[in-house]
Write a protein that binds this DNA or RNA. Structure first.
Lengths: 202, 202
DNA sequence: GAAGTTTATAGAACGTGTTCTATTTCCGGC
DNA sequence: GCCGGAAATAGAACACGTTCTATAAACTTC
């Protein structure tokens, strides 16, 4: 049982899946997760339901993703990558970092708000993640940070820019959570983000 | 069953508990929660274990706190109140908001880091909370915010000060979570907090 | 202080995340 | 094509949060 560990880790990371069949299985699982999450949020992502929908045995699901949190955080990474790619194909308007960051922030936020259940599922998983999902969480955190540093400038970001991006990411996530738990309206979120970016970049 | 609803809500809020016995039960429950959390973190706070330790039936526990998350977030509020009281008895040194906020932040952070398991349990519950625990979460958010606005000045805080306090709170929580999940060291946390406060208040 | 109501108790029961077991299928090397 | 080990499958089993049931104890009100 132990010698298979490294192979299993590769499955989790989603890279270098030995066979086509495995890559397809993994994709089916992530797709099923996103579909279920979109329909009913965190609670609707039940491991048996994901396995069923992905046409995979429960044990196989757990071989690919060792927990529900890993599964959802990995799906969040997939979604963020998609958003980043879309953003890369867009020319971000605005001639100051302030304006450009605000544009990116507004766009992604509205994108997520278009799918409240999915957002709820993914953000709750992200913030609930424990140490065992550290790698996946770090990956998402890095995606978020680089999303904002890229908006600030085309050059390599300075340390200060990285710090600012991180703060924005923290505030962004916290407001997203407040929104999915209905403690803040979309307007509240927009206002607070604007205010935060202003404090940091103006 | 329905007519008792309003009474139950009062129990949750922890105010106006009709009898001494009830206030004592509630206290025993919170104490048991904190003790178990201190020993083994979120996972060790098992509802049956809390009930046992508080000498209360499982059903009674649920009458006082409708879920594990409510229980832990309420306990977090209790802890923050304690910290605030302690802070009130201290003269916060420093002659700029920057210095004073940093002092308060450092103190509370080190305080929490002295009890990693408890901190893990409470922060994870806080960030995992769903809409049903909105009131409890808001209370904690408010405690955090006012902790920082108080450090900034003795006067009533301006809107900008409130905004800054909120941002600091978001960053603080996020770093605390990174620390409990072992994605950041205590030094990382201290550095990032310092940097954030500098960006916002200097 | 008795009747009626609310609250507490013990413990069974249920749902869902996770683990385990036994069996079958797939795949790389001969 | 065949063998041996890894991966997948079906399904049972287990753990813990939560809910439910039946009974007893504690209160209110007269």
């Amino acid at each position: 049982m132990s010698p298979s560990k490294s192979r299993t880790d590769a499955l989790m990371a989603g890279e270098e899946l030995s066979s086509v069949a495995q890559r397809e299985r993994r994709k089916r699982i992530v797709d099923a997760t996103i579909a279920l999450a979109s329909k009913g949020g965190f609670d609707a992502v039940q491991m048996r339901a994901v396995a069923d929908r992905a046409d995979v045995a429960l044990g196989t699901l757990y071989r690919y993703f060792p927990s529900k949190v890993h599964l959802l955080v990995s799906s969040l990474a997939v979604e963020l990558e998609r958003a980043q790619e879309k953003m890369d194909r867009t020319t971000v308007p605005g001639d100051s970092p302030y304006e450009r960051v605000l544009f990116v922030l507004g766009r992604i936020t509205r994108g997520l708000q278009r799918n409240p259940h999915l957002t709820e599922a993914m953000t709750r998983a992200f913030t609930f993640a424990d140490a065992s999902a550290g790698a996946e969480v770090d990956r998402v955190a890095w995606l978020m940070e680089s999303m904002f540093t890229r908006a600030m400038s085309d050059e390599d970001p300075t340390d200060e820019q990285k710090a600012i991006a991180r703060v924005i990411g923290d505030v962004w996530l916290s407001n997203l959570v407040a929104w999915v738990t209905r403690r803040a309206t979309a307007t509240d979120v927009a206002n607070r983000l604007e205010l935060t970016v202003r404090l940091l970049l103006k």
